[in-house]
């Protein structure tokens, strides 16, 4: 499980510490990956910075996308159950 945002590493580290998250946080602070993946929400951050639209991906071991969720609004989030169902269906489909 990997969380990706445009926050600098120190902000993500702070978030991990206060929230007690153990999973990996990656810092796309030049917005390079969200541009590459076309997941930019332009000028929506503080001071008009480009940030990510909410998006969740499930990749298999070959790097193929097995499931993707692009929410219709930024107030809507994937629920953990949806991701777990996607993982289950990937395992049932045989890796």
């Amino acid at each position: 499980m990997v969380a990706i945002s445009v926050d600098p590493p120190s902000d993500s580290q702070h978030l991990r510490e206060i929230a007690g998250y153990s999973f990996l946080f990656l810092s796309d602070d030049k917005a390079q990956v969200i541009h590459q993946w076309d997941l930019v929400h332009p000028h929506a951050g503080i001071d008009g910075a480009d940030i990510a639209r909410p998006a969740e991906y499930l990749l298999d071991s070959s790097g193929k996308v097995r499931w993707v969720n692009l929410a219709e609004g930024y107030l809507v989030r994937t629920r953990p159950k949806q991701v777990l169902q996607a993982v289950d269906s990937m395992n049932l489909a045989g890796k």
Binding site: D11, A55, M90
Partner: peptide
């Protein structure tokens, strides 16, 4: 072994 990853693009903290 792990096989794959879940990536969560979020808007920042």
């Amino acid at each position: 072994k792990t096989s794959g990853a879940v990536l969560i693009f979020y808007r920042g903290y």
